[in-house]
C-alpha cells in the first residue's frame, strides 16, 4: 500500500541541470538533501506540497494568517528534523497534510500539540507527489464525499475539519455516541473503496 514517491517531470531547458535535478528528484532524495541543509531542496519540497498543506490548514482555521502559521511550522519542523519522516511513513505529501490538519485543529482548539510528528504513520494508497495525480485524486475524493449520506458527511466534517470529539458531535447533533462512531467509520470505508476501485 505504501508508494515511494517518484515524480519525474519534463525537463525545463531554461533551467540549470542542478535545478532540474532538484525539481525532478523524489521525496526521499529531497529529504536527504534537506538533511544536508540544502535550501534549494527545501524550496522544491515547499513548492510541491505547500498548496495542500496550506489549504487544509485554511479549511480548518478559516484564517489565512493562522493557516500560514501552521504552514510555516509544518515545514520548519521538516527542516529541523527531516528524519522524522521515514520511508515507511507513506508519502511525504500525505504525511504533511495530516500533520498540518492535526496542528490546525490544535490551534483551533487552543491546545498544545497533541502528538509528535513521529507518531503519525500512514499508508497512503495514492502518490500525491505528482500534481496531476493529486488533482485527479482530489476530484475523486470530493465526488465520494458529495455522495455520502448527509448525516455521514456532516459527522465526518465536524470530526475532521472542526476537531470535535465524538461526544461533542453527539451532543451537538443529538445522535447516540455509537451512531457517531459508526458514521465516521462508514464514511472512511466508502472513501477507501472508491479510491481502490
Amino acid at each position: 500500500m505504501f508508494e515511494s514517491p517518484s515524480n519525474p517531470k519534463p525537463s525545463d531547458n531554461r533551467t540549470s541541470s542542478s535545478e532540474t535535478e532538484i525539481r525532478t528528484a523524489d521525496d526521499t532524495a529531497m529529504l536527504t538533501r534537506i538533511g544536508q541543509r540544502d535550501e534549494n531542496a527545501m524550496e522544491a519540497v515547499f513548492r510541491r506540497y505547500s498548496g495542500p498543506v496550506y489549504s487544509v490548514a485554511l479549511r480548518v482555521l478559516r484564517d489565512s494568517g493562522q493557516a500560514e502559521d501552521v504552514l510555516q511550522e509544518v515545514f520548519l519542523q521538516l527542516w529541523r528534523k527531516p528524519t522524522a519522516f521515514a520511508q515507511n511513513r507513506g508519502s511525504l505529501g500525505a504525511w504533511l497534510v495530516v500533520i498540518a490538519r492535526n496542528r490546525a485543529i490544535d490551534v483551533l482548539r487552543r491546545r498544545k500539540p497533541s502528538d509528535s510528528v513521529e507518531d503519525v504513520v500512514l499508508a497512503s494508497p495514492v502518490n500525491v507527489a505528482d500534481e496531476a495525480e493529486r488533482n485527479t485524486v482530489m476530484q475523486k475524493v470530493r465526488g465520494v464525499i458529495a455522495n455520502l449520506p448527509e448525516e455521514q458527511r456532516k459527522t465526518l466534517h465536524l470530526a475532521y475539519f472542526e476537531g470535535l470529539s465524538h461526544t461533542e458531535i453527539a451532543s451537538r447533533t443529538g445522535d447516540p455516541l455509537g451512531t457517531v462512531k459508526t458514521r465516521i467509520r462508514q464514511a472512511l470505508i466508502t472513501l477507501r473503496k472508491a479510491l481502490e476501485a
Binding site: 495542500p52 496550506y54 507513506g90 500525505a94 497534510v97 495530516v98 490538519r101 500525491v128 470530493r142 472513501l191
Partner: peptide
C-alpha cells in the same frame, strides 16, 4: 491515517 490524508486533500486548494 492514509484515508484521512485523502480527506485532507478534499479541501479547496489554495496556493
Amino acid at each position: 491515517q492514509g484515508d484521512f490524508a485523502l480527506l485532507a486533500l478534499s479541501a479547496d486548494q489554495q496556493p
